[in-house]
Design a protein around this nucleic acid. Structure first.
Length: 426
RNA sequence: GGAGGGGUGGCAGAGCGGUUGAAUGCACCGGUCUUGAAAACCGGCAUACCUUCGCGGGUAUCGAGGGUUCGAAUCCCUCCCCCUCCGCCA
């Protein structure tokens, strides 16, 4: 969420952000400012009365101790109505505060100046493209046919055992995916990310911290009985790792990588875009997360992006980088890139990474601050994250990209040290 | 899951109904002393919010929430977490 002080100082900027992000009416800002004024009035009134009552209590204590019971009793009588008046004022200010906080959660992050204005995904800008789309002297198959042919993933039995979108990977399919995970993690380690194995379930506070709650509860599987959610991405537990902490400035930047399965309900997804490995309820992902000094977050965004792109380059998979427009970038991000890999068997781009700078938006919700080395008050830091990378679509693109005329699939050289095999098939 | 013990500032650890945001020690920062350092001594050292042009003033916070009371870190209730023992278990 945004700092209330920032909204007080820059109401038109915030209104503008709401319009650009298409998250609702910018009247919200006026409502918030009015509420803020009445809240502050109520707080002041309550605190002033509380000052009086504290003074009276102190006085009574003093009288009691010095044996002046009667004077003390008189004072108690005199302030008999204090309690109810206090309770009324407290209720009032608390109600206003809760109302205000709820509205603050509805205000989206302000997009960075470099983000293109847009309404839909059509308005995202392709800012970079790498690699050549492969040319085949045969018709390339989509990955689900290659998978079927080589017995790499079993969708039907997954559907029997768990449901659609919960496949079994088997044999070389399982080994290929595991090798990719290992490759991604090892690459991250070389780039100074500390590996984390986080919990795969999170409590409500954590879901709120990264912005899954309120509003996006439909995204997550819920273990109602225990008040827990299955993680939709490692971003949630890993970013919450430092919730409610004050970090020494010298420790920044903090960089974490984590491999986890991710669980998403994906309610309402159907059709050919969800065929095969394109969209699953459970999928693997290596996530990169950074906690950085506010002055360094845009630099960090570019380096995080490079960390992800280096993986695609190493695998030799053609990809493009999209700079997301204001209308398509999401509620919590200030700036976001998507990386899409080319799927020759489907003749379409597949999103395999999403790389975002949240500035202080998440960190303020989570109350993550750093203590300036020069001394002074703690300052809210900046958080970023990006996939490095999401597995199933990489597997899909890799199978399709490296399929051979004889039906076999070759493994890119860079990956072979991890797989231990050079081909799948024939 | 059962029984018991406990959660206090960066850490350790007092306080167990009144003037306590909280003794003391350690750590940290500044100063005195010293050629320099150590030691010793002196001083400082939580967070959030409200208010003020500013100095400052105020409110809240002793795991979380609620209650009793003129007054709660201290008493009561609920929940969370940690430790010990028992049970179960990869």
């Amino acid at each position: 969420m945004l700092d209330i002080q920032f909204i007080r100082d820059n109401p038109s900027l915030v209104k503008d952000a709401i319009q650009k992000k298409q998250t609702g009416s910018s009247d919200l800002v006026d409502t918030i400012l009015e509420l803020d004024t009445s809240w502050r009035k109520a707080v002041t009134a309550h605190q002033e009365l509380k000052t009086d009552s504290n003074a009276a209590a102190k006085q009574i204590g003093f009288l009691m101790k010095s044996g002046q019971q009667e004077t003390a009793q008189a004072l108690i009588q005199q302030n008999a109505d204090m309690k109810t008046r206090l309770a009324t004022l407290e209720d009032e200010s608390r109600t206003l505060q809760v109302e205000l906080e709820n509205l603050l959660l509805e205000v989206p992050n302000v997009p960075h100046a470099s983000v293109p204005l847009g309404r839909t995904e059509e308005d995202n800008e392709v800012v970079y493209e790498w690699g050549e789309k492969p040319v085949f002297n045969f018709t390339p198959l989509p990955h689900w046919e290659l998978i079927e042919e080589h017995g790499l993933v079993d969708f039907d039995r997954g559907a029997k055992v768990s449901g659609a979108g919960f496949p079994f990977y088997r044999g070389l399919g399982a080994r290929l995916q595991r090798s990719l995970i290992q490759f991604f993690l090892d690459s991250a380690a070389r780039r100074d990310y500390t590996e984390i194995q986080p919990p795969l379930v999170i409590n409500e506070d954590s879901a709120r911290g990264t912005g899954q709650l309120p509003d996006k509860e439909d995204l997550m599987y819920e273990a109602k009985r225990d008040g827990l959610y299955l993680i939709p991405t490692a971003e949630v537990p890993v970013t919450n790792l430092h919730r409610d902490e004050i970090i020494a400035e010298e420790e920044l930047p903090i960089r974490y990588c984590a491999y986890t399965p991710c669980f998403r309900r994906e309610a309402g997804s159907h059709g050919k875009t969800v065929r095969g490995l394109n969209r699953l309820h459970q999928f693997d992902k290596v996530e990169l997360v950074q906690f950085v000094h506010p002055d360094a977050s845009y630099e960090a965004l570019e380096s995080l992006r490079e960390d992800a792109e280096a993986l695609l380059v190493a695998l030799g998979l053609p990809y493009r980088r999209l700079l997301m427009s204001t209308g398509d970038m999401g509620f919590t991000q200030a700036k976001k890139y998507d990386l899409e890999v080319w799927s020759p068997g489907q003749q379409q781009w597949l999103e395999v990474s999403s790389i975002s700078n949240f500035e202080s938006f998440q960190a303020r919700r989570m109350n993550i601050r750093y203590r300036p080395a020069a001394g002074g008050k703690p300052v809210v830091l900046h958080t970023l994250n990006g996939s490095g990378l999401a597995l199933p679509r990489i597997v899909a693109a890799l199978l399709e990209h490296y399929q051979q005329a004889d039906g076999s699939i070759s493994i890119p050289q860079a990956l072979q040290p991890w797989t231990g095999f050079q081909t799948i098939g024939p």
